[in-house]
Simulated assay, not measured.
Amino acid sequence: MTLNLLKLSVGPETVEDLEGFIERRIREAGTDHTWHQTRMVPKRRVDLLDGGSIYWVIKGQICARQRLIDIVPFTDDEGIGRCRLLLEPALIRTERRPKRPFQGWRYLEPHESPPDFSGASADDGLPSELRDELSDLGIF
Rank of each mutant, 00 (worst) to 15 (best):
Q66H: 05
G51A: 05
S135G: 12
G104P: 03
S9K: 08
E95N: 08
T14Y: 00
A122N: 06
E16W: 02
L48N: 01
A122C: 09
P101N: 13
G30K: 10
V46Q: 13
E95P: 01
D50E: 12
D47E: 14
T94Y: 02
F117Q: 00
K99M: 14
M1Y: 04
H36R: 05
Q37C: 13
P12M: 05
R67G: 08
D32F: 05
R67A: 14
P101E: 14
L134I: 09
V10N: 14
L3V: 04
G51Y: 10
R82T: 07
Q61N: 14
E95I: 09
I71G: 00
W35L: 08
P73I: 12
R93Q: 09
T94S: 07
D17P: 05
P73H: 10
R65E: 07
R97W: 11
L48D: 01
G138P: 07
A90K: 14
I80N: 12
T75E: 08
E19P: 02
F74G: 07
L85K: 01
R84F: 02
Q103T: 15
L91D: 03
V41M: 05
Y55V: 05
V41G: 03
L3F: 06
P89I: 01
V57E: 00
T2P: 14
D124I: 01
P101A: 12
Y55Q: 00
R100T: 09
T38Q: 08
D17G: 01
V57Q: 11
E133G: 01
I139P: 00
D50Y: 04
A120S: 09
D124T: 01
S53W: 13
D47N: 10
D47Q: 11
F102W: 06
R44A: 09
L85T: 02
R106Y: 08
Q61M: 14
D136N: 11
S121C: 06
I26V: 15
D124E: 06
E112W: 13
Q103R: 15
P101S: 15
L86M: 12
R100I: 09
